Amino acid sequence: MYGNDTALLVIDLQPDFMPGGALPCHQGDAIVPGIAALLARRHYATVVATQDWHPADHASFASQHAGRRPFESIQLHGHAQTLWPDHCVQGTAGAALHPQVDWNNADLILRKGTHRQVDSYSAFRENHGPRGDRPATGLAGWLHERGITEVHVCGLARDYCVLWSAQDAAISGFRVRVLWELTRPVSPDGDEATRIALIEGGIDIAA
């Protein structure tokens, strides 16, 4: 059992990110039992789950850009934006939190990516604007007011939403640990770069 000052952040554990889903992560389903067990053991007094929750015409979808294909990159709000297959559309089965996890143990479920023109990898900030000054989701304030000083991060995808959430948690003043074995990437080809980015951000990587 961790102290009351430590929170678990479960990122985007949703069917669309599992094998067979709209945007499958590499072995994304492999982490579901471990995360389900972690929540069931109630080792964390505070648990936050995020949920990708896009409108059907979201700007990050390749289908919204004529002549573009998934995984191409465009400029959006001055930043490189990967174009994704349509995924986690509001109200669809693929956008639900994974049914094999008891989410009754979550204290907060934060929906992100809800604004049509703005992607939101991070649980803490939207994607547009300078790195440390992007619009906030309000999560950092919520955690600080609960006395949280340390955040442990797991979920999907390691190379995007987990990475950005961990980096923004550190920027927001929390000690951060990524539970590496309870994350999976879109592609394992970027794992070394992800590790380097986490280390450079002062983030602990737990095997």
Rank of each mutant, 00 (worst) to 15 (best):
residue 140 A to Q: 09
residue 191 D to R: 11
residue 176 V to M: 09
residue 70 P to L: 07
residue 112 K to E: 03
residue 138 G to N: 06
residue 130 P to T: 10
residue 78 G to P: 06
residue 12 D to T: 12
residue 172 S to P: 02
residue 66 A to G: 14
residue 38 L to H: 00
residue 29 D to C: 06
residue 99 P to R: 05
residue 57 D to H: 15
residue 67 G to A: 07
residue 178 V to T: 10
residue 85 P to Y: 01
residue 60 S to A: 11
residue 4 N to R: 14
residue 95 A to P: 11
residue 192 E to Y: 06
residue 140 A to N: 13
residue 206 A to N: 10
residue 155 G to V: 07
residue 185 P to V: 08
residue 164 W to H: 14
residue 2 Y to N: 10
residue 79 H to Y: 07
residue 51 Q to D: 00
residue 97 L to Q: 02
residue 187 S to E: 13
residue 40 A to N: 05
residue 150 E to A: 08
residue 189 D to C: 04
residue 123 A to C: 12
residue 191 D to P: 11
residue 151 V to N: 01
residue 51 Q to G: 05
residue 17 F to V: 07
residue 154 C to R: 01
residue 40 A to F: 07
residue 63 S to E: 09
residue 8 L to D: 02
residue 194 T to L: 11
residue 105 N to T: 14
residue 195 R to I: 10
residue 74 I to V: 05
residue 194 T to N: 08
residue 106 A to E: 13
residue 22 A to H: 12
residue 66 A to W: 04
residue 139 L to Q: 03
residue 138 G to K: 02
residue 114 T to E: 14
residue 138 G to D: 04
residue 63 S to W: 01
residue 108 L to I: 13
residue 98 H to C: 09
residue 57 D to V: 11
residue 126 E to F: 15
residue 207 A to F: 10
residue 1 M to T: 04
residue 178 V to H: 04
residue 32 V to E: 08
residue 90 Q to R: 08
residue 179 L to P: 12
residue 117 Q to H: 13
residue 76 L to E: 00
residue 171 I to G: 06
residue 153 V to P: 03
residue 163 L to P: 07
residue 50 T to A: 03
residue 160 Y to F: 13
residue 37 A to M: 03
residue 59 A to G: 09
residue 185 P to C: 07
residue 29 D to I: 02
residue 35 I to V: 12
residue 61 F to T: 01
residue 80 A to Q: 10
residue 65 H to L: 13
residue 165 S to D: 11
residue 10 V to C: 15
residue 150 E to T: 11
residue 97 L to A: 00
residue 60 S to L: 05
residue 192 E to R: 15
residue 4 N to W: 00
residue 166 A to C: 11
residue 196 I to M: 12
residue 205 I to E: 13
residue 95 A to H: 02
residue 133 D to M: 14
residue 3 G to L: 08
residue 91 G to R: 06
residue 61 F to R: 01
residue 40 A to G: 05
residue 84 W to D: 15
residue 126 E to Y: 15
residue 22 A to G: 12
residue 196 I to N: 08
residue 172 S to G: 14
residue 37 A to F: 02
residue 94 G to W: 13
residue 52 D to Y: 02
residue 180 W to H: 14
residue 16 D to Y: 05
residue 49 A to N: 05
residue 1 M to C: 06
residue 54 H to F: 05
residue 40 A to V: 03
residue 127 N to A: 10
residue 50 T to I: 08
residue 160 Y to M: 03
residue 185 P to F: 02
residue 121 Y to F: 15
residue 118 V to S: 10
residue 34 G to H: 12
